[in-house]
Design a protein around this nucleic acid. Structure first.
Lengths: 325, 325
DNA sequence: GTGAAAGCGCTAACAA
DNA sequence: TTGTTAGCGCTTTCAC
């Protein structure tokens, strides 16, 4: 941002007013084709690029959506970003991504950054950050996707989520059908999501007349550092012949731990399919989240919030698909 | 961006001038602790967030770096983004990411967007886009990372690259050591990179006294749609017992094709290690690019360009590490 | 230690 | 069809 040409330079060079240049470069209707053309030519040769900041400050919006994700190395979020970008792009919005690495304080910072950059709205796939989103967000439209904070505060925003209990139940049921007698769970620690997935697990067990056993219901720490140990605990000590890993990062760790263990046949279930599951020497069943629809819906709702004064916040529950390897 | 409180509101509420509020919220030295405190309090309770756009337009920089990547679904680029974010974060810069999906026209658009958003500099991991970056970029500092456009125009910018010929040579040599007699290559179509990797392949062959054979030197299309077929061509028809896949997306496709083929033992080599290679039923050797250093160096150079008027553009070649599975 | 005023680059009335 | 003017929200001299 140094000696860049401004609208003033173009105006001077073309011998017209700044207003005319502005008009020529935007809603070209009002300006004489000749001037129009000349101005564009000059802008081009001067290497003029409009200053979007100045424009945004004037028109009072940026036409930009913010998106906050907890882990850019996680393929699931990467795919969601892609879906959101595509949906936003289709409606002419740009998207500004920031990654929090599952750090609470980075989430507040991210939110702050988005507000300073004056995004028109924000899609949040991270939750558990600032205790009170309402306060932080002020009037900025927001929608939670995939994850959400506890219901009380989430209720004020749109939420686009997967039907976690149905999905988990389906996976665990499939594990049972495949012959697993004793199925352990390594749950995640993600606020609402985890509760729901545990519920789905219980429902599947109950439906099959199986008892619950607290000894095989475990929870991963946020950094997954206890997952390797839990894997051993369940599959070896507790003699489980089935294991449900509540998200793809947990599954990853489980998968890496398994080869070191000496195991009888077992069944594995989890969330979010990965391309390379095909290469594993055993079968896996996963609930594949409808990523594209998740992203699309989030964008649709957000834009609705932005453009229409008072649409009621709603919760959307999209069904997952069971895929087996 | 509607009824948000501005600095004026805070000033009014606090009974001071806008200037004082500005001072209190930034370089707090000059203002009396009492006023200082009072202002912060009021800002807080009003839910005031400074308008970064207005600020940037005034101070003539955004303290934001742009980063253009070709494929956000590719773990390699995702990791580079992460490295860049970390490096930028450490120096207080924000980063604005945009994904081009390997589309040439999207790259121009991306560049345009960055310029409009007035980023202070841009890191480009995509290349082959606009024929003339110089013209598009104007005076905006830029550095190419991982990929670069043809030398003539790249020379005007910093380039942070891996030593492709050394890396490829090392991998192919390793394949030879492991007993491969006839090693085919599926090269990528990425401008300079591909040429260098082919050169490394040739050097390894030459060093081992092996002949070249154009019949087993193939090139993937940008969307990899011919790779499955090439895999068969090399491993079956051409009876190769070794295969070098020039990037991770090519390797992916190869890996998925292999199980359908009925093959004698073979050796596989490629670029960029993946976590799950451990799960494959055969060995792989890859050149692991020094992603963190790549990102770090790119950021360092870019910031140097931004803050110092005339640092000479340079090319950096970082060594890859060979990893075997 | 604080205020008044100017101006960053742009767009949108209102005039002409 | 085009120009003049004001002002978006902020920072920064220059006064006091």
């Amino acid at each position: 941002m140094s000696g860049k040409p401004t609208i003033k330079d173009v105006a001077a060079q073309a011998g017209v007013s700044e207003a005319t240049v502005s008009r020529a470069l935007n809603h070209s209707d009002q300006v004489k084709p000749a001037t129009q053309h000349k101005i564009q030519q000059i802008a081009q040769q001067l290497g003029y690029h409009p200053n979007g900041l100045a424009r945004s400050i004037r028109v009072q919006h940026t036409h930009t959506l913010g998106m906050i994700i907890p882990d850019i190395l996680n393929a699931f979020f990467t795919q969601i970003v892609r879906a959101v970008e595509d949906a936003a792009d289709a409606t002419g919005y740009d998207v500004f991504i920031v990654n929090t690495d599952e750090h609470l304080d980075r989430e507040s910072k991210a939110l702050n950054l988005m507000l300073e950059k004056q995004v028109d709205g924000v899609i949040i796939a991270s939750a558990g950050g600032p205790t009170n989103y309402v306060e932080w967000l002020g009037g900025t439209p927001a929608v939670f996707v995939d994850r959400m904070p506890p219901a009380l505060i989430a209720r004020q925003y749109d939420r686009v989520l997967v039907d976690n209990v149905q999905a988990t139940q389906a996976v665990v049921t499939q594990l049972i059908r495949r012959g697993a007698k004793r199925i352990g769970i390594i749950n995640s620690a993600v606020s609402v999501t985890a509760t729901e997935r545990l519920q789905g697990y219980h429902q599947a067990l109950a439906a099959a007349g199986r008892p619950f056993d607290a000894a095989i219901e475990t929870t991963a720490w946020t950094d997954n550092s206890n997952v390797a140990q839990m894997t051993r605990q369940l599959l070896v000590n507790q003699q489980c012949d089935g294991l449900f890993a509540a998200d793809n990062t947990i599954m990853d760790t489980v998968l890496h731990r398994i080869p070191e263990l000496d195991l009888a046949p077992f069944q594995l279930g989890g969330f979010d399919d990965q391309d390379w599951f095909d290469f594993l020497p055993y079968h896996i069943v996963t609930a594949q989240q409808p990523i594209v629809q998740l992203g699309q819906t989030a964008v649709d709702r957000l834009i609705a919030q932005i453009t229409q004064p008072d649409v009621e916040p709603q919760e959307f529950r999209l069904p997952a698909t069971i895929v087996t390897h």
